[in-house]
Each structure stands twice: as structure tokens, then as C-alpha cells.
Design a protein around this nucleic acid. Structure first.
Lengths: 224, 224
DNA sequence: GACATGTGCGTCAAATCGGCGGAAAAATGC
DNA sequence: GCATTTTTCCGCCGATTTGACGCACATGTC
């Protein structure tokens, strides 16, 4: 998952780079506004824009990006600049951070913004949307590559449970508790059977997600 | 909730002390860098470090603390010192305040930082982040230099246990108790085997941490 | 330097786990 | 009531993980 970092200060790139890589993101480093605008043609998940940059400022870059996309944007601003209003109302940035900042905080904000924007895409209620896959608990339907997939209630519920928290591992007990109910008496391995069927029905070749088994722990829905 | 205040100026202690106590915090007063480093072994929730102190400066203290913990840090700096860059990016401090300040402002910042760091911990749950390494119990994933490392449950749990308290030594018995459970019957040397495997998987060349053996005691996760 | 003890590491067997096919049991629809 | 669908359970097998052992080497002590 690529994060564009646009700042003319090398130190910022180094500091954020360490934390971003540690979290599994791939930082894309540019040092001026022009390069930032070029870079967003790649598959960037989010961009961090410094306001003060040589050439085109972060504000210009932000406006430029907003003309064509809803790409999440976090602005960096020097202490004291009066930008909150601008950012919130005119630019359409998703968050802003005042320098000096701690890299940890920035990464936390990035995660928060990504989470928010993803939730937005997913709509409000029960419909989860991923690349080539949507899961709607309201109508109990699952579609894969646009085509409807016939799933049984349990299959949908399990899938929804897993997919509603991508990355998080659920143990068989947790799934039994939350899908079947706390008082389910049966075998934990019943879960396996359902996972088997879900996998059989959802060919995820080339789409960016999968249902993974964590040996000795449980299952999780994972995004690449 | 203890707040460490490290400053060589008695007046600062008095002023902050009043406001901190009024807000229900318990100030811990030290007057030089050395004492500050000693004090963080207590259960401190946040520390306020003056940069100019006799002996070891606030900057040194901050670096020292960051080697072993993610403890929230607020730096105090005399007007005009160029610290924004240092504080935000190199040191890993969470905020800084320029003297002269109003005690009320300091307390407000303390609250803000505590809120942020608390949110972070709740949001990320179990994710530990170090230079080039992250350990997430929630998704049972370990990443090294951004790339995922396949670890078994025991390996992740041990690593997480060690890394969640950098610098602290764990005996084999402690690890068995806390990772396996109090009723584990096997050999203590089983731990060695797992440490061996973790080390084999985590090439830590050049990153600032390592798993060290304390002869006759146990193991610890250490930051340089 | 000799000794006792602790540790690193290769190796291996046992225990555990998960995928899968199949079939019984339960729920549902007609 | 009967057929169909859905859910649950069982058991086998291969794969993975785990714990134990043994030996060489390291460390601390006297």
C-alpha cells in the first residue's frame, strides 16, 4: 500500500519512512509539488502533503488532486499557520498535522484516515465492498466480479464477520460466539467446513484479498 | 497518574505542581537529566523534559527513554531555540512547549498528548513498532523491513511478550507462564528453541534492536 | 586454567492442526 | 410427508508446529 510523502525536507522522509515501512506501507518520496502531482498517477492509497514546498505549494497540489479524485490527503503545516479553516472547508483535505509532529502520530493519523475513507466507501449499513467483492448483510447477497454468488446464511454471516475487520484474526470460538451465539454447543471445527465452502465459492484470483488461515489461531480476511 | 517533571528551575516545579495536582495528576519532581532517567522506571504516565538541564540535557534524556519505551514526552524549550525539527522527527517527542509558558497551557497539552497516545494504543491494540519491525497480535503478523515474516503462534507470542517491554529481562519461567500458561509442564529449555527460531527469522542487521541473552537469567528485547 | 553450568543450534519424533470428502442430522419449502 | 437445502459432524491424511535431546561452544567462578 503506497503512501505518497511530499515534503522538501529530507528528514521528514527518513523519519516517516521508518515508521511507514514498519507498518507495511510503501512510502513514495517526492520533494516538490510538481513531482507530487505526477506521482498520484501511480496507485497511491493516501498522500501526505507539506504546505511549504518549492514550486507548487501543498495547497495547490491538494486542489489539483481534488479536481480528479477523492484520494485521502493529509496536510502538513508549520506551527502557527492558520490553516484549519482552509483545510477543512476549501481544500478538502482529510486531516492536517501541525509540525513538529511525532512520526508515530502521523502514522496513526494515516491509519485513521484510511479507516474512515474505507468505511465511507463501504457505505453505512452492512454492505462491505472490496475489489470485486461485495457483501450485503441487509439483503443477504454476495457478489463477485459483479455476478451474484449464492451463499447460505451462515456463509454470508461468517464472511461478513471476517471481512468487517480485515486483517484481524478470529479464532473459531470467536466466530462461533459472534455468528452462532454465545450458547452454541457444537464443535469448533464446524467453522472449518463453512470456510471451506466459502473459499470454494469465492474465486479470488487477482483480486486483492483472501481468507487466510492462521495456523493454531483461526481465520482472517486479509487485504494485500 | 504520575507526571514526571524534569527541570532545574524550582519555579517551574512549583507552578506546574499546583496545576497538575489540581487536575488530579501526581507530579514527580527531578532537577537533572540523570535523575529523570532513573525516575522513568517508576510508573510514569508522561514526562515533561526541559532541554537545558545540568548534566544530561533533555535531548539526551529523551533519546535514552525512547530506546526502551514509547512513554509520551513533552519537551520544554527556551524561546528561539531551533528544536521543532529535532523534537518532531529525530527525538520522537510527542509535543514541545516554548518558554515562557502558562502552566494552564502545559496542563492542556499534557491532556492532549495523553488523549492522543491513549487513542493510539486503543486503536492499534497490540501493534508494536520498532525500526524496521512491527508485531501485531491482532492480525498475528510480523513485518521486517516492510515485508511479512511468517511466524508461528508461539513465536509471535514470545516476541510480542519480549518486545512489549523493551529492556526488561524475562526468565524462561516467566515466559512459560505468560505465553504457555501457568500449568505448562515441559522443559524450560523449550524457550531456547523458540528464541533460536525467532532469531533465525528476524535478521536485525543495522536496525536498532536485538534479542539478547542474559546469562543465567533469561532473554530480553533490547534497543540500542 | 580447570571446572561447573548455561546457551546455541542441528536434528528428530511426537503432537497438533487444518483441508477435504463424505455422510448424518436438522431446517426449510412445497 | 417428502424432497431439497443447509448445517453439523466424523475421520483420514498430509502439513505444520512444537518440544526434547545431544553436543559443541560460551560464560562465569574459583
Amino acid at each position: 500500500m503506497k503512501i505518497l510523502v511530499a515534503d522538501d525536507d529530507q528528514v521528514v522522509h527518513e523519519a516517516l519512512g521508518i515508521y511507514l515501512r514498519a507498518e507495511g506501507y510503501e512510502p513514495v518520496d517526492v520533494y516538490d509539488g510538481e513531482a507530487a502531482i505526477q506521482a498520484v498517477n501511480q496507485e497511491i492509497a493516501l498522500c501526505v502533503l507539506d504546505i511549504m514546498m518549492p514550486g507548487r505549494s501543498g495547497i495547490e497540489v491538494c486542489k489539483e488532486i481534488r479536481k480528479t479524485s477523492q484520494l485521502p490527503i493529509i496536510m502538513l503545516t508549520a506551527k502557527g499557520e492558520e490553516v484549519d479553516r482552509i483545510v477543512g472547508l476549501e481544500l478538502g483535505a482529510d486531516d492536517y498535522i501541525v509540525k513538529p509532529f511525532s512520526p508515530r502520530e502521523v502514522v496513526a493519523r494515516i491509519k485513521a484516515v484510511l479507516r474512515r475513507t474505507q468505511e465511507q466507501q463501504e457505505g453505512d449499513g452492512s454492505a462491505l465492498v472490496f475489489n470485486g467483492l461485495s457483501i450485503d448483510l441487509k439483503s443477504y447477497t454476495v457478489t463477485l466480479r459483479g455476478e451474484s454468488v449464492i451463499c447460505t446464511p451462515k456463509e454470508i454471516e461468517i464472511l461478513h464477520m471476517l471481512a468487517s475487520n480485515p486483517g484481524q484474526v478470529f479464532t473459531r470460538e470467536q466466530l462461533l460466539n459472534r455468528v452462532w451465539g454465545y450458547d452454541f454447543a457444537g464443535e469448533t471445527r464446524t467453522v472449518d467446513t463453512h470456510i471451506k465452502r466459502i473459499r470454494a465459492k469465492l474465486d479470488n484470483e487477482g483480486l486483492g484479498w483472501s481468507i487466510k488461515t492462521i495456523y493454531g489461531v483461526g481465520y482472517k480476511f486479509e487485504l494485500d
